[in-house]
């Protein structure tokens, strides 16, 4: 299991691994928003938590189809499915590797981009906290979507269509926690809900994703 995690991390950071692409995408989206809505600080400050959350979510989406598609192409997925580690574990490790290479960097970058969008002072901590609690859910839900579409030739667009509706609750609670935190309101409920979604997704989705992979391999 640890070997698989290390391999995936190594692959992601080598040339062509795509590490950093999501971060660059996140930066560009954040820069584009003021061009779209105008440079007025009050407006930006009000929409900053939501924009940063949506931006992180889309950046996360970008790298999902690599999770299994490459392993499927070169035959590794067949070999992993016959290897002495449970497929559910493979899914969980893949999701963890995706989070470490995508969700975690996005979480750390978000406060910096928050400066660009005039995020209110107290919002920084809450934004980081809500992203830290929510991005693991984005990774595991996305891994499930990638497992569903791994057998398809051009599954990327379909993957987005399947995964984005599943992202709605995470987005709502995450952005709500960041917004309320910025306005000095209570953030306990949305953060709790979001933590619940993350834990629930981690408990259930590896099994659903492993089942989907087995179906796709036969």
């Amino acid at each position: 299991m640890l070997a698989l995690l290390l391999r995936d991390l190594r692959l992601a950071t080598r040339a062509g691994g795509g590490f950093g692409l999501s971060l660059a995408f996140f930066l560009i989206v954040t820069v584009l928003v003021p061009f779209g809505v105008g440079p007025e600080g009050g407006t930006l400050s009000r929409i900053a938590p939501g924009i940063l959350w949506v931006g992180a979510l889309l950046a996360c989406l970008l790298s999902l189809d690599r999770i299994f598609a490459l392993d499927r192409e070169d035959g590794s997925l067949d070999l992993l499915a016959t290897a002495p580690i449970p497929l559910e574990g493979v899914v969980a490790v893949k999701a963890l590797a995706h989070w470490l290479t995508t969700g975690l960097p996005l979480t750390l970058a978000a406060p910096v981009l928050g400066v660009l969008l005039h995020l209110p002072g107290p919002g920084f901590a809450w934004l980081t906290l809500s992203l830290a609690a929510g991005t693991p859910a984005l990774s595991i839900i996305g891994t499930f979507g990638a497992a569903l579409t791994v057998g398809l030739k051009r599954g990327g667009l379909l993957l987005s269509l399947l995964v984005l509706p599943l992202y709605i609750p995470t987005l709502i609670f995450g952005a709500e926690a960041a917004r309320r935190g910025g306005e000095g309101l209570a953030t306990f409920t949305p953060l709790l809900m979001q933590g619940g979604i993350t834990l629930g997704a981690l408990a259930i989705l590896p099994f659903a994703a492993a089942a989907a992979i087995r179906v796709n391999l036969r």
Binding site: P169, P190, A211
Partner: peptide
Amino acid sequence: LTSVLCLVGSVFALLSRYAVLF
């Protein structure tokens, strides 16, 4: 695959309902 999606989707649709109410 669609059956698995329907199962998982139902859970998340229900979650979305409560999230939206919130």
